[in-house]
Design a protein around this nucleic acid. Structure first.
Lengths: 182, 182
DNA sequence: TCAGCTGCTGACCGATCGGTCAGGCATGCT
DNA sequence: AGCATGCCTGACCGATCGGTCAGCAGCTGA
């Protein structure tokens, strides 16, 4: 079953993305991925050190953009600008990487506890603070958390909606939903 | 290890609730629950037919209220009233049963596919339509889905917030976020 | 021609999963 | 005393998990 040009690595990656999005990270076995690719489970583990390595490679571009968003929030000069940067940046991220975010569907909290993703925890806390505008006001934090979680959780349902429709709709929702910072 | 008044059944239920909320349904083994109760795994399966039976008994009250909400939405006379009933009813449900909803954290979609919960799928679709107000307008559906998913996902984080604070904050967020029906 | 590397396979490993089963130990009724 | 019943245990089951390993084709450069 050897291939002329071995592109198995990428095939595993895309197959894993499909399976993870459909049944979650934990709900997908290496056997599932191998079956979808049409190779053996051992072949999957030949191309990737372990199951987690597939996930990290899959999420790498989204994570890079997420870290960049965290930096841009830190660079904001006042709370109102930080809120605007956070809202627009997160909506952009969600629209652009909605397939990747769908992968984490509901497993994000426990994956964030994993050492490999621990630094993302701090970034998402800064993101929530910036979105809330008034981090100490409970209602503002509640709105920020609900919108963040809602977009993360729901954007996997919007795979067939065009970016030009999804992006303004999400942005309008977020700006309506958040309490103005200041 | 026999008890004078056997209350093991309820102890299993509350232990399971804690574990499910902490690590999810699939992420919790019968062994975990037994360990927390201080009995054997076989004892857990003496009181409950199987793992799923624990979940269904745990969720029964919340499911009953959810079904009632579906009926009340159906009985609404116009879209605007249906939207109001859906919004207030769902926020009430989320606040009241936030511990139970936290159990389903992220596993709700796949649990809904299970035959035992299949009828809830239809109810949640009616709920989304009612919240959207204009079910055919993409931006309205997006807002409804994000708010629904967000509240479901995030309310587990609000266990230490008083009902009197959480309820108005969520209701305000939903009314701001939804597009008016009509 | 042949050594060596790449890509891959099937068999196997220990751990853990949900679930079953025979039996034991109290307790209460007859 | 004898027996049934309720509650629970430890041993065990087959399935599945992530991961390892020896070895086998096929290509490549010396």
């Amino acid at each position: 079953m050897a291939r002329a040009v071995p592109e198995t690595h990428d095939e595993i990656l895309t197959a894993a993305a499909r399976r993870f999005a459909a049944t979650g990270y934990r709900g997908t076995s290496l056997q599932d991925i191998a079956r979808e690719v049409g190779c053996s489970k051992a072949a999957v583990l030949y191309h990737f050190a372990n199951k987690e390595a597939i996930l990290t490679e899959l999420m790498a571009p989204a994570i890079a953009v997420f870290q960049d968003l965290g930096d841009r929030i830190d660079r904001a000069t006042d709370p109102a600008e930080a809120q605007r940067v956070a809202a627009e940046g997160f909506v952009d991220l969600a629209v652009r990487f909605r397939r990747e975010i769908a992968v984490l569907r509901g497993e994000l909290p426990e994956l964030l506890e994993h050492p490999a993703f621990a630094h993302l925890q701090r970034i998402s806390e800064r993101l929530i603070d910036a979105l809330a505008g008034h981090p100490e006001r409970p209602s503002a934090r509640i709105a920020a958390l609900v919108l963040l979680a809602g977009i993360s959780e729901a954007c996997g349902e919007f795979l067939d909606i065009a970016d030009e429709v999804l992006r303004p709709a999400l942005l309008a929702l977020v700006t309506r939903g958040l309490e103005p910072a200041g």
